[in-house]
Amino acid sequence: MKILIERPKKEIEIEFNGKVKDLLIKLDINSEEVIIAKNKEIITLEDDVSNEDEIEILSVVSGG
């Protein structure tokens, strides 16, 4: 699975099949601070993602 993380900006590739909320736990990211897009569509923490998906983890925290 290809994942683009907005803050701090980086791109990673990992093996993962499961719920978004579990992916965030695995990446040690607080679900309160991000929204997730799968193939450019927003999904919820309860949705499933798999190795074929392109995921964006977008920061909701203001930069200033």
Binding site: E32, I35, G63, G64
Partner: peptide, 24 residues
Amino acid sequence: KEKEIMTYSYIKGFNTPYNECPYA
């Protein structure tokens, strides 16, 4: 909530640049 605003902003296609203030 910030999370709601970000969701609204994304759906609306605002594409505001994420940029963190180096002082913050």
